[in-house]
Design a protein around this nucleic acid. Structure first.
Lengths: 256, 256
DNA sequence: GAGTGGTCTAGACCACCCG
DNA sequence: GGGTGGTCTAGACCACTCG
């Protein structure tokens, strides 16, 4: 009847591997401490972590705080929990998170090639049906249209058509777009990007696209069709990307 | 010096919109109650939710419990929080979560077409280099190879080559594979699938693939290359999928 | 039955945002 | 300054897993 045997507090060894008041939340310090131990090999794949009670004492914080730190590593896939058994280090860690919105330059740097963007058009046009629909506008409302060509190691890889509602951010018309995407410019102006919804298809290259990308007409194109959504759920940007099939791939993770 | 003005406990109106002891955790009940209010239109997009204190009283639970329920809806993208301001209903909800591992039949049902799988091969073969690498095996170790053709409304859409380590699940060789994928069979045998890593490309159809998919040689194929990972991080299945470019698309969401 | 994670409480102080 | 979310505590009981 009485109760939990938990918190059997031995001699209360403080041992604060984490400490307050340095601006970083305790759970974040715990998260990073564990991450460090894992990447340093102190906690090898497959091994069991100390129990939550043990971590509670070790770090000198409450159990809920430990759980918050551990939970974030679980969301990242670095750890997994099994009720009644324990918390373990995953075998294979997700290399990079490919399910995030990245910039062309970031990806290029990660893959190790030289990146360059050439802007082919930057103007105000009336929204065509598809664009209006994606951006929640009426057909014909003004949108800023930016067409750019992206090069990797000097070769044209992707033709990019972006559309942003004119009323949302008229200044975009005069921004230098050779180093960022529209949504990056929007973020710098205070909009908060939540996520993007993207559709991917394989298409034969049309004549004009084949010409720009210096490939044969009819050769495979990896085609992406993307809408960038703000934190409040409103669309910020609509984009169509045509990438050379022979030099472009997309990687992603699918959760169960 | 004293303290927070929180929990000003009026008359303690129980009003348990959620109740214990029915097997469903309180935070889950709260999550579903809020989800219902949102989809019923009682909480319209853009509106602010009652504060966490208010929800605490309304549901008759502690604040941490409310936060857990709300947090899960935030992870789903249905709500968003702004510190110092409040919690709001997102404008546009993510329609379906396309970042999950789905079965061919589930997707077919969601898209509204008839699905059929025809198994072309199901045998034990030695692992070739690429397969061995993906599955953490030595070259030549036995793997179960299953080639299947997937039809939508009677038309061949995808050619599917799957590989599973023989030692992992020898029974797979005799399973009826016209209704499920290998990883589904593995799950039913107690393995826990965590996620899959997938690469997507656009390729020209080779002769034999073009023949099977009844398309022209050289026409665009959406090619996927996938490894299914278990909870403990070990690879369970490696698959190559060739889909007709003109009748197959992939949708996904990218977080910021 | 011992150990472990899952859920939950009733508070508290802080940081942030806005009028 | 008042309201809101962000973090944190020191407990508690439950459900599950395993030897």
């Amino acid at each position: 009847m009485s109760s939990a045997v938990r918190s059997r507090k031995v001699g209360r060894v403080p041992m604060p591997a984490v400490k307050k008041a340095n601006g970083v939340p305790l759970y974040a310090q715990i998260r990073e401490a564990l991450r460090r131990q894992i990447s340093a090999g102190e906690l090898k794949p497959g091994t069991k972590l100390p129990g939550e009670d043990a971590l509670t004492e070790q770090f000198g914080v409450s159990r809920m705080t430990v759980r918050q730190g551990v939970s974030e590593l679980i969301d990242e896939g670095l750890l997994y929990r099994r009720r009644g058994v324990g918390t373990f280090v995953s075998q294979r860690h997700v290399q990079r998170d490919h399910n995030r919105l990245t910039t062309f330059f970031d990806s290029a740097a990660a893959e190790g090639f030289d990146a360059r963007i050439e802007v082919l058009a930057q103007e105000v046009v009336p929204a065509k049906h598809m664009v209006a629909q994606a951006l929640d506008l009426k057909e014909g409302e003004p949108v800023i249209y930016i067409r750019s060509l992206r090069f990797a190691d000097g070769l044209p890889i992707t033709l990019h058509d972006e559309y942003v509602p004119y009323k949302l951010f008229p200044e975009l018309l005069y921004q230098e777009m050779t180093t960022m995407m529209s949504w990056e410019a929007l973020e710098r102006s205070g909009y908060r990007v939540k996520h993007a919804v993207q559709k991917v298809e394989a298409l034969p290259a049309e004549h004009n696209i084949a010409t720009v990308l210096q490939m044969e007409k009819g050769a495979p194109i990896l085609f992406k069709h993307r809408t960038v959504i703000a934190e409040d759920g409103n669309p910020l940007e609509f984009a169509l990307c045509y990438s050379r099939g022979d030099s472009y791939a997309l990687t992603m993770t699918l959760k169960r």
